[in-house]
Simulated scan of single mutants.
Amino acid sequence: MIEFYSAATPNGYKVAIALEEMALPYRLHHLDLSANEQKRPEFLAINPNGRIPAIVDTDNHDFAVFESGAILLYLAEKTGKFLPADPNARSVVIQWLMFQMGGVGPMMGQANVFYRYFPEKIPAAIERYHKEGRRLLEVLNTRLAQVEYLGGNEYSIADMATWPWVRIHDWSGISVEGLDHLQRWLEAVGNRPACQRALQVPPSASQSDDERAKAVSKMVTR
């Protein structure tokens, strides 16, 4: 059993996708970030950084893993899925995983902050992160013109990590117009049943009360 600590964020959805794709049994612990539940001592004992997501693998002596990229690698190695055995192919997948961790997530996250949440509009900051976000999406588009998925022609944890961030490009204020290969990939990954299920774990605040209730009723263990 995987004890899964998460909230409705792109980083949380990465791990939800992996758990669903790998068909691992898990139990969701939904942390209310607005109430700072991620800063409580019991969670800090799992992740000293006080951020979601995190997991505890009860089948491995209650081994705890934090940082979303590290969790994806751990789960891929645990199951032998979505990470190639060949050293070179494995390295390519990890390179694109790190591209998301070091680039796509942080830059689009900053775009979200200044475009959506910051109490005052700072045009220079918004422009900076919109430009850098668009540049990173163009890098992805160039890659996806060459291969079907980010790691090559097989779906991998690199796609699981990147898709939850790219799918919210509108919310970040970043256009994908003209990025046809990226749009093709967005649709292909989004059509995967595991991805669709993962977006209910936990349900986002934009869902209706009925949708949230139905999702919660399904998410105890899967």
Rank of each mutant, 00 (worst) to 15 (best):
M98H: 08
M98Q: 09
M101Q: 05
M101D: 01
M101A: 10
G103N: 01
V104P: 01
V104T: 04
M107L: 07
M108H: 06
M108N: 04
G109M: 01
G109W: 01
Q110D: 04
Q110I: 04
A111N: 02
A111T: 02
A111Q: 02
A111E: 00
N112P: 01
V113F: 11
V113R: 06
F114L: 08
F114S: 14
F114V: 12
F114H: 10
F114Q: 13
R116E: 14
Y117A: 15
Y117L: 13
F118M: 11
P119Y: 09
E120G: 12
K121P: 06
K121H: 13
I122R: 12
P123M: 12
P123R: 14
A124C: 08
A124N: 10
A124Y: 13
A125P: 07
A125N: 10
I126V: 14
I126R: 06
I126D: 06
E127M: 05
R128V: 04
R128N: 09
H130N: 05
H130F: 07
K131Y: 05
E132A: 03
E132P: 02
G133E: 04
G133N: 02
G133P: 03
G133A: 04
R134Y: 08
R135G: 00
R135D: 03
L136I: 07
L137T: 01
E138F: 05
E138G: 09
V139Y: 09
V139I: 15
L140Q: 08
N141G: 11
T142E: 14
L144Q: 11
L144V: 10
Q146C: 15
V147S: 14
E148W: 10
L150W: 14
G152N: 10
G152V: 08
G152R: 08
G152T: 06
N153C: 00
E154W: 04
Y155I: 07
Y155E: 06
S156V: 05
I157D: 06
I157F: 00
I157A: 03
A158I: 00
A158Q: 03
A158M: 07
D159G: 08
D159V: 06
D159Q: 06
M160F: 09
M160R: 05
T162Q: 05
W163H: 11
V166T: 09
R167F: 08
I168M: 13
H169L: 02
H169E: 00
D170C: 03
D170P: 05
W171G: 08
I174Y: 01
S175Y: 03
S175V: 00
S175P: 00
V176F: 09
G178T: 05
L179C: 12
D180V: 13
H181Y: 14
L182W: 08
Q183P: 11
R184E: 13
R184S: 12
W185L: 11
W185M: 12
W185C: 10
L186A: 13
L186G: 11
E187F: 15
E187V: 15
A188K: 13
A188E: 10
V189L: 12
G190K: 14
G190M: 13
G190A: 14
G190D: 15
R192Y: 12
R192V: 15
R192T: 12
